[in-house]
Nucleic acid binder design. Structure first.
Lengths: 223, 223
DNA sequence: ATTACTAATCATCGAGTAG
DNA sequence: TCTACTCGATGATTAGTAA
């Protein structure tokens, strides 16, 4: 029931689950109901849901009655990729709008971004020297999927380096506009913060935009 | 090679052709090249392109050498529908941004829209009485596909009527914002102008926005 | 009610090859 | 070279049915 050819159907099924709301909250659907939605038999729909589960694209809470389905992060990412493709087709070269809430980092951002090894590269790539420190934006739900689009996209490359025995990893940079202010999204190649977006800028964003923790912001990222 | 199940593959193939630019201009691709793009054999790709052609989704100019492919209006519409679905998933309840150029109608707009049978309904649905007359916007290329999305969408219904032996057809209404001004898109149920969008508003748009023929405008339509 | 197994059916794919 | 046919293999879909 799985294979290379089924990927399209997986995406199609995910799309319909997403339209039912399964990205944001668990959705109660029987295999029979779902079968009608995607135009297959109950048996095929059941198998399809099994496939999606095995592929890690959905979560199921299944009782003897109907089942509750949620789309996983990797499922949402697959959909977001598809969305990005179609967006490119219709809206021209891509920008991606991500929404999230300002959050406090651990203060480590300033230390890392302040390193000359990074600053020199930023200046070369962006034309200006950003202030040391990053504005951290916490992403939730469907917005998380957009971050994955960035992970898959090619950005401006920032190389890693070592300084005084300490190693500093590589990163990718995407130009962005955050609440009308130009800046750049920094995506470390290795990070544990898969739910936050780090933004640097020539201005001190938190001060310039008067942002407090929890403030909602929009970031338009250029791909 | 055709059937109900192949629709997904058709869409997938159309997407890749669109990414190659085939919505806007003819693209030169051999079946072998296309095979690599979509991950199939040359034979399957050839059959797929035949399918798309038979289904009226693409146009082909085929010589003994490679072929030139363009996506048809109905092909673009299929993609736009898919895009609208995914847009709804990620950006919440739908708005659709359409771009086009201001064009002169035949002056008939003012006559039709001025009819009391229409004006009364507009006032009820929109809360205000729009000025008699419509701003016509000519659509091209990928934007045409978006109009088809509107044709398939449910809008506010305006009924037809007769007055003095003359019949006036029904229409659909979508709220919209055009260059920052609130208005509504009028979609006559029967029209020959499949490439123009008609916008009404409480203000005289052409005057208020200082629009001359050919001016590019953006319309954000609420679905 | 449900989910999901098995067997039979049928569509789709790739290889070979003709035009 | 290219497109696109036929055919055998593969794999997905359905019906019947168990749990």
């Amino acid at each position: 029931m799985s294979g290379e050819r089924a990927k399209l159907q997986h995406l199609h099924a995910l799309k319909h689950l997403a339209l039912l709301g399964a990205i944001r909250f668990p959705v109660r659907v029987s295999s029979g109901e779902f079968a009608e939605v995607i135009g297959l038999s109950q048996q095929a729909a059941s198998g399809l849901l099994l496939d999606l589960f095995k592929a890690g694209l959905i979560r199921r809470e299944i009782s003897s009655r109907k089942q509750h389905i949620t789309i996983t992060e990797s499922g949402a990412a697959a959909l977001a990729l598809e969305h990005a493709d179609l967006h490119r087709v219709f809206e021209g070269a891509g920008t991606l709008e991500v929404r999230g809430a300002v959050t406090s980092g651990l203060g480590e951002g300033a230390y890392y971004m302040g390193q000359d090894g990074y600053q020199a590269q930023f200046e070369k790539l962006l034309g200006t020297r950003p202030v040391a420190g990053t504005l951290n934006i916490r992403l939730q739900g469907a917005e998380l999927a957009k971050r994955q689009v960035l992970e898959n996209a090619k950005g401006m490359e920032v190389s890693g380096f070592t300084d005084g025995g300490r190693t500093f990893g590589g990163a990718k940079l995407f130009r962005c506009v955050i609440e009308g202010v130009e800046g750049a999204v920094v995506m470390p190649l290795r990070t544990h913060h898969r739910d936050t977006l780090e933004v640097i800028s020539r201005k001190h964003l938190r001060r310039a935009l008067k942002l407090e923790d929890g403030a909602k912001v929009r970031v338009r990222v250029q791909l």
